[in-house]
């Protein structure tokens, strides 16, 4: 995995956290042993997130390792009582943007997904006659799709929507925590996440059509753009 170094490594630390010099240890800092334990506990969820971001096993492992190295280097900027997960994920996502070149063959354009709305899958399912009054809501289109097909739909979203949606689905993070990780206002997270989910529903329907899980939609707005 290629790694582009940033001119100022302070960017690795979460915004708002001053980067302290090693000789200005604050009482809020955790010990190296505590830090290591926190880091080890985060490795598996971080790998799952990295895999969904990169779409590649080796890139995901490289990303986690580089993020862990960077986290260790800047461990003195992590303060006890704050969210280690948000702090570490921010380093990981920053490194993903700066150091990883994803292997992406397809990314759907924003315009192609701009008509996705709140209840896209529900409306399509109803139009296709897949919803009955006594139907089990969990026996829907997504539950009949494989993990790889769902991941493929997520991977095609435009970057700004895909990253927010990936953080949302891969961990139980609040909008505020996602905002802290990405360094954007909570309103931006809300709008990107909502739009991203609606876009994802449209992509899922397209893939379900390709797989023959649902009947092909005649309406061109749900077909290939």
């Amino acid at each position: 995995m290629s790694t582009a170094s940033r001119p100022d490594d302070r960017s690795a630390a979460p915004a708002g956290d001053a980067v302290l010099s090693p000789d200005t240890a604050a009482p809020e800092q955790v010990s190296d042993q505590e830090f290591e334990a926190l880091l080890i506990d985060m490795l598996e969820p971080a790998y799952r997130l990295a895999f969904r971001l990169t779409g590649d096993k080796q890139d995901a492992e490289d990303l986690v390792q580089e993020a862990a190295l960077r986290a260790f280097r800047f461990r003195h900027t992590f303060q006890r009582g704050t969210s280690f997960k948000a702090w570490f994920y921010r380093i990981l996502v920053n490194h993903f943007y700066t150091g990883t070149r994803r292997k992406r063959s397809t990314m759907t354009s924003l315009g192609d997904l701009s008509d996705a709305h709140e209840i896209f899958l529900y409306a399509r399912s109803a139009d296709a006659g897949l919803l009955r009054a006594d139907a089990d809501p969990s026996a829907g289109v997504v539950s009949r799709m494989a993990e790889d097909d769902v991941a493929r739909a997520l991977a095609t979203l435009p970057d700004e929507f895909r990253t927010v949606a990936t953080l949302y689905f891969m961990d139980d993070l609040s909008y505020q925590e996602i905002a802290d990780i990405l360094g954007v206002p909570i309103g931006t997270v809300r709008s990107r996440l909502h739009r991203g989910r609606h876009m994802l529903q449209k992509q899922l329907w397209r893939i379900a059509e390709e797989l023959g899980i649902v009947p092909e939609t005649v309406d061109s707005s749900a077909g290939e753009g």
């Binding site: 997504v142 993990e147 689905f169």
Partner: peptide, 13 residues
């Protein structure tokens, strides 16, 4: 329906 879709997506991803 939407809640079930989100649960399915979390589970699979």
């Amino acid at each position: 329906f939407e809640g079930a879709v989100l649960d399915d997506l979390r589970l699979k991803l």
